[in-house]
């Protein structure tokens, strides 16, 4: 799920940046440092949408670096158990398939793939129903339900299932081409 929240961070800035563009430098550095990272607490920082407040800088002894407390708004993404997500399949094998939703890596075991879908090895490994009408392969888009999450410092892992009503393939590149 996405959240729009306010976070705070102490930014260290090199003295060479002091000048009329100090604020711009600070914001640019903030974006570089924060966007695309994960925190176990808030999830994945997708984008910074605004800077609310930059506090008074504090000069560090010895180095001359200045620490600014910065309050900023950002959009974060964090998956929850029970959440329904749409994801792109990245890898299919005997054990199930891996999918990605942005920074989140999801594994769906073949136990949690409907029983009528069977694994087919070959150049493009896939799970297919016996009548061939539904196929999950690399690049397929699936709707799945999260049943377990783990948010590490830099990565987010999820366990998913498609063995439930209204879950499964929502777009199949193999069928359309």
């Amino acid at each position: 799920m996405f959240f729009h929240i306010v976070l705070e961070r102490n930014m260290q800035l090199h003295p060479r940046h002091f000048g009329p563009h100090l604020r711009d430098k600070l914001v640019a550095k903030l974006m570089k440092d924060v966007e695309g990272t994960c925190s176990g607490r808030h999830g994945f920082v997708v984008a910074i949408t605004g800077v609310d407040n930059i506090g008074k800088g504090l000069i560090r002894d010895g180095t001359g670096f200045v620490t600014f407390p910065v309050k900023y708004q950002c959009v974060v993404f964090r998956p929850f158990k029970g959440e329904i997500l749409e994801a792109v399949v990245t890898m299919v094998n005997k054990m199930g398939f891996f999918a990605e939703a942005g920074p989140v890596q999801i594994f769906v075991s073949n136990h949690l793939i409907p029983d009528d879908m069977e694994f087919q090895a070959g150049d493009v490994p896939n799970y297919t129903t016996s009548d061939g009408s539904v196929k999950i392969q690399k690049e397929s888009e699936v709707r799945l339900k999260i049943i377990g999450t783990r948010v590490d410092a830099t990565e987010i892992f999820c366990i998913g299932t498609i063995k439930d009503d209204f879950l499964g393939v929502i777009n199949d590149p193999g069928a359309s081409s």
Binding site: L112, D152, F157
Partner: peptide, 24 residues
């Protein structure tokens, strides 16, 4: 389908979680 309390975790483990019940 999956009972959290009785899951024997006989499924691949991904990121430290059982891929059947989602528990660590």
């Amino acid at each position: 389908a999956v009972n959290l309390e009785t899951c024997l975790h006989q499924a691949p483990i991904f990121g430290g979680m059982c891929s059947l019940c989602g528990q660590f």
